[in-house]
Amino acid sequence: MPPTTTTSATRPSRRFDVNTPDEPGVFTSNQELRERALALARTVTDPEMPMLTLDDLGVLRSVEVSETGAVTVAITPTYTGCPAMATMRDDLVRVLGEAGLAATVRVSLSPAWSSDWITERGRQALADHGLSAPGRVPARSGPVALSLLPTRRELHCPRCGSDAVELTSEFGPTACKALYRCTSCLEPFEHVKEI
């Protein structure tokens, strides 16, 4: 495998950069192409939470178009062992392919995904579908503190709105979710974990 430079690793903070063009003519067409590719990529949904787009989830990291017009989409896993990565890649390739754009999908490992990247629209979509959205990831300085008591989160039951909820398990049906139970309406629900 030839070593390649990863743009997202070296420029982590800037999302959806427009490539710097060499000549104005290429700029326009490449920019248009990139905008089209980006708009398409933004419609692709998460395989396990289809009410969320990959963009809303913060998994879609960048869409780049080379000088020759090749489209490269970068995605990042929510968890290292996420088994849905291949499905996401295939969905992106298919959606762009159906619009006549041949895209390559690559994995961007750094910076590591954070639940803080879930957009407001994404959080609303989670709530609309009975899932509790993650709170802000607590800032950390120094070593990760051990926590022997159940994580305290200010949560509301996504069904009845009560804040009388209790943690059942920090591990749910997918790596990114914890299990909760509402002690008012007695319904269980899932909470997308802060990570």
């Binding site: 390649t4 088994p83 890649r89």
Partner: peptide, 22 residues
């Protein structure tokens, strides 16, 4: 065929695709 039908076995050929492995 369409690999998106399958959850496994269609994973990235190279899990480090696009990552700087210098």
């Amino acid at each position: 065929g369409d690999p998106s039908h399958w959850a496994f076995g269609t994973d990235f050929e190279d899990p480090l695709a696009g990552v700087d492995t210098t």
